Simulated assay, not measured.
Amino acid sequence: MRASIQIFSRNMIQNEMLAASISSATGLSCECIDVLPPAQGRAEIGQRMMLIDWQQLDGDSRWDALGDVLGDPMQTMDTILFNVPTGLDIERQALDRGVRGIFRQNQPLKLLMRGITAVLEGELWYSRRAISERLRQNQLTQASPKAASAGKEMLSAREREVLLLIAQGLSNDEVGDKLCISLSTVKKHLCNIYAKLKISNRIQAAFWAVQNLKN
């Protein structure tokens, strides 16, 4: 059975048009919903991605509502926010929560399809400015040499290779091709890396690698 993509928004005309375009572009089943399911419910249906309309979330409790959906950080790899207003603040908070991508209001449908495809392939979809800013912040607050050394020692040689490729922006499929290992093996390495470094998502893994494995 094909994996599901869900679109949360109460703008049903927009949803139906978007769902048809996504299904055509990805070949995956796509459905529209008007109630956000909890993280546990998402895991049970095994969906690949959820697109959430930022404008349809309650203004003062948007992140609380998203927290109920995101749940376990390991389940946030396929969450995208769309109809997001201009500004870096939302991008910063989304990065912290492991959201995979941000789409601005009134962006062309072609760009949206390109971004969704990229996220499905394991990439992030954020502005370069947001990613660059986060890298600079992490470089300024990087761990002590002792802590960094301990982290390196916990990782196997293969896990360090995976981390370096993730930091270069490669998708899981590309990492597998580069290292001649299966996609499931790449995912297993990532789970082990998250546990050893006490991090919760791919973004944090990339930042850790930039800080501690480049020198």
Results as ranks from 00 to 15, higher is better:
Arg2Ile: 03
Ala3Asp: 10
Gln6Ser: 09
Ser9Ala: 09
Ser9Val: 08
Arg10Asn: 13
Asn11Gln: 12
Ile13His: 02
Ile13Phe: 02
Gln14Ser: 12
Ala20Phe: 03
Ser21Arg: 14
Gly27Glu: 12
Leu28Pro: 02
Ser29Trp: 00
Glu31Gln: 12
Ile33Asn: 00
Ile33Lys: 01
Ile33Asp: 00
Asp34Thr: 15
Val35Met: 11
Pro37Gln: 06
Ala39Tyr: 01
Gln40Met: 06
Arg42Thr: 03
Ile45Trp: 04
Gln47Gly: 10
Met50Leu: 15
Asp53Glu: 07
Asp53Cys: 03
Trp54Glu: 04
Gln56Asp: 13
Gly59Trp: 05
Arg62Val: 03
Arg62Asn: 11
Arg62Asp: 04
Arg62Ile: 01
Asp64Thr: 12
Ala65Asn: 10
Gly67Tyr: 06
Asp68Phe: 02
Asp68His: 04
Asp72His: 06
Pro73Thr: 00
Pro73Gly: 08
Pro73Ala: 06
Met74Lys: 07
Met74Val: 08
Met74Glu: 09
Phe82Leu: 03
Asn83His: 15
Asn83Ile: 05
Thr86Glu: 13
Leu88Pro: 11
Glu91Leu: 02
Arg92Gly: 04
Gln93Tyr: 09
Ala94Thr: 13
Ala94Met: 03
Ala94Pro: 02
Leu95Ser: 13
Arg97Leu: 15
Arg100Pro: 01
Gly101Met: 06
Ile102Gly: 08
Phe103Ser: 07
Phe103Arg: 07
Arg104Lys: 12
Gln105Pro: 07
Gln105Ser: 11
Asn106Thr: 00
Leu109Asn: 01
Lys110Asp: 07
Lys110Arg: 06
Gly115Val: 08
Ala118Lys: 12
Ala118Ile: 10
Ala118Cys: 06
Val119Ile: 11
Val119Cys: 07
Gly122Asn: 05
Glu123Tyr: 08
Glu123Phe: 02
Trp125His: 13
Ser127His: 13
Ser127Asp: 14
Arg129Cys: 06
Ile131Arg: 04
Glu133Ala: 11
Arg134Glu: 13
Leu135Ile: 15
Arg136Lys: 09
Arg136Val: 08
Asn138Tyr: 14
Gln142Pro: 02
Gln142Cys: 06
Gln142Met: 12
Gln142Val: 01
Gln142Leu: 08
Ala143Met: 15
Ser144Leu: 08
Pro145Met: 09
Pro145Asn: 11
Ala147Gln: 10
Ala150Asp: 12
Met154Glu: 14
Leu155Val: 08
Ala157Asp: 15
Arg160Pro: 10
Arg160Cys: 11
Arg160Leu: 14
Val162Arg: 09
Leu163Glu: 12
Leu164Phe: 09
Gly169His: 04
Leu170Thr: 04
Ser171Glu: 08
Asn172Gln: 14
Asp173Val: 09
Asp173Cys: 02
Asp173Thr: 12
Glu174Asn: 14
Asp177Asn: 06
Asp177Cys: 04
Lys178Thr: 15
Ser182Tyr: 01
Lys188Glu: 05
His189Gln: 11
Lys198Arg: 08
Ile199His: 02
Ser200Leu: 04
Arg202Tyr: 05
Ile203Pro: 03
Gln204Met: 10
Gln204Thr: 01
Gln204Tyr: 06
Ala206Glu: 14
Ala209Ser: 14
Val210Arg: 04
Val210Cys: 09
Val210Ile: 14
Gln211Pro: 03
Lys214Cys: 06
Lys214Ile: 09
Asn215Trp: 00
